[in-house]
Computed example of a mutant assay.
Amino acid sequence: MNATVCAPTSAMAVANWFLDRAKNEPNVPAVDQLKLYKLVYYAHAWYLGNKCGPLFDEDIEAWPHGPVVRDLYIEFKNAGRGPIKKLGTRFATHGGKFEIETPVYAGELEPYLESVWNSYKKHSGIQLSNATHAPGEPWTLVAEKRDLSGKPTIPNELIEQVYSAKVEGSRQH
């Protein structure tokens, strides 16, 4: 995957973009918690791997079923194992007032997010989770050295290192 534009956003806006996009494709596996967290992770990982810096500022943590952004888990945990049927919200400040907003990314990163969606949409959450557990993946490298009960952060530097090598490998083929 090649990211041609570098522009930061939030994990919630990326998650909502995928949820909104999934509504238009009922023939692909539903977006449940596992799938959503992994889509957001892969978007962030490939963005780092393309040397664009972090896609968003939130940490990615190594949870037992793979990489997770904690804010997304807090927002969507009530979906259980079923499809997520709502967009996420967050508090924001506008003109000195707190409001609840529903961020959905709209801008120059949309072609990039579309490429991530097209690469992973046909996979279930379990398939994507299993892929994050493969040898050499950032989650696996952290899990080999740390107890996951504390849900340690997967450093962006590690994600970038692994995914930069994948980008370079894809360019050589």
Rank of each mutant, 00 (worst) to 15 (best):
A79I: 11
Y120D: 08
M12V: 14
N78I: 14
D32G: 10
P64D: 11
G125C: 10
K51Q: 14
K145C: 13
P111W: 08
N24V: 03
A22Q: 00
G88M: 05
K86Q: 13
A134K: 11
F98K: 11
E110Y: 02
A62G: 02
N130A: 12
F91Y: 13
P111M: 13
L48S: 08
L128N: 06
V104Y: 03
Y120F: 14
T9Y: 01
H123K: 07
N24L: 02
A134Q: 10
T89C: 09
E61G: 00
Y163V: 05
K77S: 07
G82F: 05
R171K: 15
H65K: 15
K85G: 15
A22L: 02
R171V: 00
N130G: 03
D57E: 15
S10P: 02
Y42F: 15
V104L: 07
A106W: 01
D32K: 09
A62Q: 00
Y37A: 13
T9A: 08
T89I: 08
E110F: 01
A7T: 06
S119K: 04
P29Y: 09
M12H: 06
D147R: 10
A165N: 14
N2H: 07
E137T: 03
P67R: 06
K23M: 06
W17G: 03
E25I: 00
E137D: 09
R146G: 02
W17V: 00
P155T: 07
S129M: 08
H44K: 06
L113P: 02
S164G: 05
G95E: 06
R21V: 08
D147N: 14
P111C: 02
I84E: 05
V40I: 07
N130S: 13
K23F: 01
V40L: 10
E160S: 04
D59S: 15
P26G: 10
I126Q: 05
F76C: 11
P138S: 11
A15Y: 03
I154P: 00
R90A: 08
K86M: 13
K23Y: 02
G169M: 11
V167I: 14
P135I: 00
P26L: 06
G169K: 15
H94F: 07
P67N: 07
G169V: 12
D57A: 13
I126D: 04
K51C: 12
K145V: 05
P111L: 06
A92S: 14
E168G: 07
R90G: 04
Q127C: 07
P67M: 10
H65V: 07
G53F: 07
W139S: 06
H44N: 04
I84R: 01
V162Q: 02
P135K: 12
N16H: 08
V68E: 03
A106P: 03
D71H: 11
P83A: 15
Y120W: 11
K38C: 06
Y42E: 03
Y37Q: 13
A79S: 15
Y42T: 01
A22S: 13
A30M: 11
G96K: 04
V116L: 14
R146K: 13
A134T: 10
P83E: 14
V142I: 15
E157M: 01
D71R: 04
V68S: 05
H44W: 01
S129N: 04
H173D: 12
L39V: 01
W117K: 06
T9F: 01
I100F: 12
Y120K: 07
G125R: 01
M12I: 05
K51E: 15
G88K: 00
A106N: 09
G150L: 04
G80S: 12
L109T: 12
R70D: 14
E137M: 11
P155S: 13
